[in-house]
Design a protein around this nucleic acid. Structure first.
Lengths: 347, 347
DNA sequence: GAGAAAATTGCAAACGTTTTAAATCGCCTT
DNA sequence: AAGGCGATTTAAAACGTTTGCAATTTTCTC
């Protein structure tokens, strides 16, 4: 029990070679005789030698880890986003032999302080930052430090001088509007959150731009806003929208969870989706396929994005490119049964 | 840009103290004069000093990390299990200042080899193992090495001499059977998977035991089996069960995903749930609340379990208790609308 | 076969921290 | 003023690797 770990020194002794030679042989250095390299590799394999990460990190300055600070999350809410994202990152990293560090922010500590710890303790060679806020201190910090990172999401101010990958929510929301407009809808509802996340603005702006492009003054847009994690307030806001004297015939939700709540409340109010009301979401959460009658939404393939983010980050770490790496992914429409032509009765 | 990291040496120099003193002062050693300790703490805070993890790990032998090797997963399948589990682990670890390492097995490599790497490279002080197989080489390896770990799940052979936390699936399945029996059901269906995971056996055994306890020879149990990730085969097996001349009036699925498929196929076959068919799942996946008419299932509160696993593991690492830590969690019934009295027509 | 060049190997320092054992300091006792 | 004692600080080794430079061995050239 508790067999000790093989060390380079032991391996060297057993081969009657110096530590230096064994180290270089395992690293595949050309300057070591091929025969020696093979002999060493053989012995290492047989002894089950695994280099000590700490020692290697200490001297080389590279840890082989990529960090992800878990965003602070609501108490009840389990979002599938995280699971998919982490899986994708793992898949992207593994091919390059890198591993993932997940750091969680304790209740008292800010996400920034955790990030600083991860960066400055040398645990990670680079980090991934998700859910960009309008004023994001994490990005400011990382940029100032010149530490390798890739952001999932963009800032608003057009200052894109950093590595990011984002989902083109603006385009998707424009597409959603166009589709609904062509189905005869003129009175729209937008269900959104009050938190200052940039993706909210980008999507809303995409919607506004699409409305503008039509130049149709009869188009009307109501907006319902509630805090991200306050389910009660969310339901209230949605009901205000649904129960007003003139309710929208089509509701676009910032993301699926909101859309699902809209459909629940619509059902409770005796409205039939999509006959009385069209609903469109964003994310293609698993539940959206099951919630009747099937939510029409956009698939951003989070897993695939995360995979690509991992690739980008590893490139940044290895090559430190001068120009930032950026990538805008266009989500695809998943057309289910929650949208249809505008009801005829009122127009 | 790219400010260098503060090191202990620099800090010591700026304070005109030795490295030793500063190190001890920061560690709060009593033998260092209180005044000095305060002075050092102040300077460290101001300089934003963060100790280098690699160096600390190298000398102390403790990395402050807990490892989780991601189980190899199906290609399309995104299970919410992972997301919840990881979140729970993170929550449990953070209060003790530990972080999580996620290692992914590359396509060619076995999960065991990744585990070995994590363990022997000294990256982690302990690991969590999930989804125990009937013959689990990971457990064998960890036990032989005497490396700290906690398993989520049990082996079958009654050899429980290791640290584990498990969900009492046997009890839940017994409860499900009793409830259905009392509702008049006599013909049961079990939808399960063909992979040799221990949780499958435990749940099935729980069901069998409950059937035995009734001692009612009129009870009948059909079984449909398909590989975990083969959706086509799963649907076929389910349909064979539903379309036979005598179909069960109540189906218990090994977990929610299977139950959801059962409900889909039942709907496709024109069966009404729960009027014609009762369905019960296990896991309380998010989608189970949305799939009409709402799936009755068991909630194992994975997040909470993971949290507790984290606590257990940290105890094991710190105290190396002689007797294994074990914990059996009883899942709670989430009663929705997918079960009801047995149909009268045929009895 | 001497000398040089090329190929191969090894010594020792370095990475930043913790820790053992020893040194220094201040102050009191006699 | 020497000795002693407790309080405080420090020097140096250690953890397991990588790497610049030097040392050694082999091979080649004439």
């Amino acid at each position: 029990m508790s067999t000790r770990v093989t060390t380079l020194k032991e391996l060297a002794a057993s081969l009657d070679l110096s530590i230096t030679t064994v180290s270089r042989a395992l690293a595949g250095h050309e300057q070591i005789a091929l025969k020696t390299r093979e002999r060493v590799a053989q012995a290492a394999r047989q002894a089950g030698y695994v280099p000590n990460t700490a020692a290697r990190t200490l001297v080389s300055g590279r840890s082989g880890f990529v960090g992800l600070v878990l965003p602070v999350r609501g108490p009840n809410l389990v979002d599938s986003f995280l699971g998919e994202f982490v899986t994708g990152l793992g898949e992207g990293l593994v091919s390059h032999g890198a591993d993932l560090i997940l750091a969680t922010a304790a209740l008292g500590h800010s996400e920034l302080s955790v990030l600083r710890h991860v960066v400055e303790s040398g645990r990670a060679d680079g980090v991934v930052v998700t859910r960009i806020a309008e004023v994001d201190e994490r990005l400011a910090y990382l940029r100032e430090r010149g530490f390798p990172f890739v952001a999932h999401g963009r800032l608003l101010d057009g200052d894109f001088a950093y590595n990011w990958l984002d989902t083109d929510g603006a385009h998707a929301f424009g597409e959603a509007f166009d589709m609904l407009y062509d189905l005869g809808h003129r009175h729209f509802g937008l269900v959104t959150i009050s938190e200052p996340m940039t993706f909210r603005h980008l999507r809303q702006d995409g919607l506004a731009a699409a409305i503008g492009r039509r130049g149709d003054p009869s188009v009307r847009l109501d907006v319902a806003t509630a805090p991200r994690f306050d389910r009660g307030a969310r339901i209230q806001a949605i009901n205000r929208m649904l129960q007003g004297p003139e309710r929208p015939t089509a509701i676009i939700a910032l993301f699926d969870e909101l859309a699902l709540t809209v459909m629940e409340e619509a059902a409770r109010a005796g409205l039939s989706v999509p006959r009385d009301l069209s609903v469109i979401g964003f994310d293609n959460v698993v539940a959206s396929a099951y919630a009747p009658p099937g939510l029409t939404t956009f698939d951003a393939s989070i897993r695939q994005c995360a995979r690509e983010i991992a690739d980008m980050l590893l490139t940044v770490i290895a090559e430190r490119p001068a120009a930032p790496l950026t990538r805008l992914i266009r989500p695809t429409l998943v057309s289910r049964a929650s949208h249809g032509p505008a009801p005829q009765t009122r127009s």
